[in-house]
Every structure is written in structure tokens, then in C-alpha cells.
Design a protein around this nucleic acid. Structure first.
Lengths: 220, 220
DNA sequence: TCTAATATCGAACACTTGTTCGAAGAACCC
DNA sequence: GGGTTCTTCGAACAAGTGTTCGATATTAGA
């Protein structure tokens, strides 16, 4: 049995990455020493360098792998969907779901965004920019179709990311509402907040013909 | 001239704090060495220790001073105001205003929340908890009076903090909308999002007698 | 079983870190 | 001017850092 989808090497690397992410998440990237990782993985100090070339490359591997998964999952989810508001809802659900299920990695991605430098930083950041642009475009579409006025799209987009990415500072899956509840709450606050008076207008004039009732987005 | 409101010592300490906060904000607390601070302030390495007992105490001084100002400003602002929604609006405005005007310190407060330990951590955190509780209580009042249902107050409160505290990751006062615009956008998104269907209901049934028209909160 | 590639290790290096200490300068009051 | 307190400094220390290197195990294929 020589070749599975995951080679022995890959499995070991992923194990190192997951263990490191947990420590990075707990005490921060810069306060974590390779010796900490060595202790936690049971591998020797120098043995670790067989799996990464430097501590910073390890950080990159974690961030890149984690973010690539989020975005590719997201693209798969919204492919074929037309309604931009529904797309946004799916994006938020996916983002929060992955965040909570991979809290360590996502915390490292969010919190250590500036601990990575040079080409690694550029690579991660260009993916982030694409993701942000996707959200900004969705918001633009929604705004146009629903007649949202007076909101800055950049502020709106980063407000949404703030709501989502801040959760590593407070969310505790043992005490708080579950992930789907979290997603429902955040989607509702943001989307109904983004629509704002447009939502009121839609209700008043009852022009629901060319616009889906916004409420339907988070109900059922 | 021996005694002004700010002694020579105080002025020097504040200068050290401000300079340090700028470096902490730029490269992170753990990646900043006392030698960096020495270089930036023009003081000698050991000379700095006349103003703080340890690097971590310096971090505490920055966080504590910064957060104490935000909260005391906030309390002064909302004292005497009755309407909880207006209180919340003022809190958001104050928070964002101070954040943008003291971006370095607030970034250190937000980003380095876990870089501080022991009693220092406890002291800063108990103040934070009070601040969070204030927001949660305001949201509770608003929810009760306006008939908001189905939202988790903890999620809502931290969503708001996420929107506000995330700005150090993206906001650029040279390119983005100004602070008042930022506050208007965020207040509108959050408050109208928090009210949600209650806002629609209020419009439909026109029962504005015992509830202030929510919209009025961010208009004028 | 031999061989070559893969994987792991201990020991060491060069460097940076926060902090201390005793002494010296500066400012102030009598 | 003398003495006291406040402020600053250079030099050093002990500890911890990321990384390297040569040498071993361990595995897999012939």
C-alpha cells in the first residue's frame, strides 16, 4: 500500500500544522517557539525542519491551507445560485461554519495576518482581496436591486467581516448558541441592517414582484 | 513654575507610551524590543525603566489609560440620556471617534488583548466586561421596548464590537469616509439590523406613539 | 540482503531578548 | 555652594531564540 490520497508525509505535515495552529492560537505566533511545537508534537527540534523551511513558512502553510479551503468551499456553494442575497447568506454560513469548526486555524489567519511578511504575505493577501471583492460585489448587486442608498460598500463589507472574524475573541461553542444559530443571528443583523429602509419601503409599497421578499432570505 | 497639571514626569511617560503604542501597533507587541523603543524615543535602554518596571507593565499602562478614557468619555456622554437607542448611538460614535483618533493605542488594546497576563490582564478585562455589559443591557432595553425577538443578545453585542474593533484592519482615514460617516454607516447597519422586522412592523401598524420612530435615531 | 531514498535526531552556533546595577549627570531647595 | 532628590546612562548578564549540520535510524524497492 504505497499511495493513498494522503501520503504518510502529508498526514504528518497536517498533524504538525494542526498542532502548531493550536499553540499559535493559544499563545500567539511570536510567543510560540519551535521548541513548544517540538514538545507538543513529540518530534525533535531539528526533525520539524524536514516539514517546513522556517517558522514563518509554517505560518504561511497554515494560513494558506486554511484560507484556500474556506474560499473554495464558498465558491462551490454559491456556484449556480443567482440571487445575490442568497449568495451572501451562503457565504456567511460557510465562513462561520468553517471558522467555528477550525477555530485555531482561523484565529491564526485573522489574528496573525501581519505576522507574515514578504511574498508569503502577498500571496495570502491577494486571496483575501479576492474574497473581500466578492463580498463587495455581492453587496453592490443587492444594493442596486433593492434600492439601498447612503451606505458605503467598503464600510459595509468590512463591518460584515468584523462581525464574523471577531468571534474568535468571544465565541465559545460550549456556552453560546450553536453555529447555525450564530449564522442566523449574524446574517439577520447584517442583511436586514444593510437593507434598512429599503426593507421598510418594500413592505409599505408591497412591490415584491421584482424583488424577492428580503425576509425570505433568512427564513427557511 | 513647579506644578502644572502635567508634571515633567507625566509628560515624558505619556510620550514614551504614545511612541511605544505606535511601534506596538505597527509590528506587534512581542516583536517590539525595548531597544526599538529606546531608538524611537531617543532614550537609553536602561533609562526607559525609570518609567515602567517591565515591558508588560508598559503594555498595561497603554491599554489601561486608553480604555479608561474611552469608557469615562462614554459615561459622560450618555449620562442623563433616557432613550436606550440614543445611548447606544452615542456609545458607538464615541467608540469609533476615539478609535480613529487614537488608532495606535486602540489597536494595541484590541489586538494585544492576550499579550497581557496576570493581574494586569484581570484589571483591564474587568473594565472591558463592564463595557460589554453596558452594551448588552442597552440592547436588552431596546429589544424589550421595540419587540425585537429571536436575537441572541450576546451575539448581537459582540457583533457590534466586531464591527467597531475590526476597523484597525482596514480603515484608512486618508482614503475612507470620515469618522462621522463611519459612525453613521455602522450605527445604521447595526441598529436597523438589530431592530429588523420590528422596524417593519412599526412602520406597518403605525404604532409610533409609545415608541420613538427608530429611524430618527440616525437621522439628524 | 543490499541500496538508495526518506525521515529523524542531538548538539551546537550566532544572535536577540528583557532586565539589572552602580555610577554619573541634572534640577531643585536651603 | 552644598546636599538631596530626580533622571539618565553604559555595560553586562542570563536566558531563550530560529536555524544548521552531520550523522544516524527507518523504510521501500531491487
Amino acid at each position: 500500500m504505497s499511495n493513498e490520497s494522503q501520503s504518510k508525509y502529508d498526514l504528518r505535515l497536517v498533524h504538525v500544522m494542526k498542532t502548531s495552529a493550536a499553540i499559535f492560537a493559544e499563545k500567539g505566533y511570536h510567543s510560540t517557539s519551535i521548541r513548544d511545537i517540538s514538545r507538543a508534537t513529540g518530534m525533535s527540534l531539528s526533525g520539524l525542519y524536514y516539514y517546513f523551511a522556517s517558522k514563518e513558512e509554517l505560518l504561511f502553510l497554515i494560513q494558506d491551507y486554511c484560507f484556500s479551503t474556506v474560499t473554495s468551499d464558498c465558491k462551490r456553494l454559491i456556484a449556480g445560485v443567482d440571487d445575490p442575497a442568497l449568495k451572501l447568506k451562503l457565504l456567511v454560513e460557510n465562513h462561520l461554519n468553517y471558522f467555528v469548526k477550525n477555530m485555531n486555524e482561523m484565529k491564526v489567519l485573522s489574528h496573525e495576518a501581519n505576522s507574515i511578511t514578504g511574498d508569503w504575505f502577498k500571496k495570502v493577501n491577494s486571496k483575501k482581496r479576492q474574497y473581500v471583492d466578492l463580498v463587495k460585489n455581492l453587496l453592490g448587486e443587492i444594493a442596486r436591486s433593492q434600492g439601498v442608498k447612503g451606505l458605503d460598500l467598503r464600510v459595509a463589507a468590512f463591518s460584515l467581516f468584523g462581525m464574523m472574524n471577531w468571534i474568535y475573541n468571544w465565541y465559545d461553542s460550549r456556552k453560546d448558541v450553536d453555529v447555525s444559530g450564530l449564522a442566523r443571528n449574524i446574517t439577520r443583523i447584517f442583511l436586514s441592517g444593510f437593507l434598512g429602509e429599503a426593507l421598510v419601503e418594500a413592505e409599505k409599497t408591497g412591490r415584491e414582484s421584482h424583488l424577492e421578499r428580503p425576509v425570505s432570505v433568512w427564513q427557511q
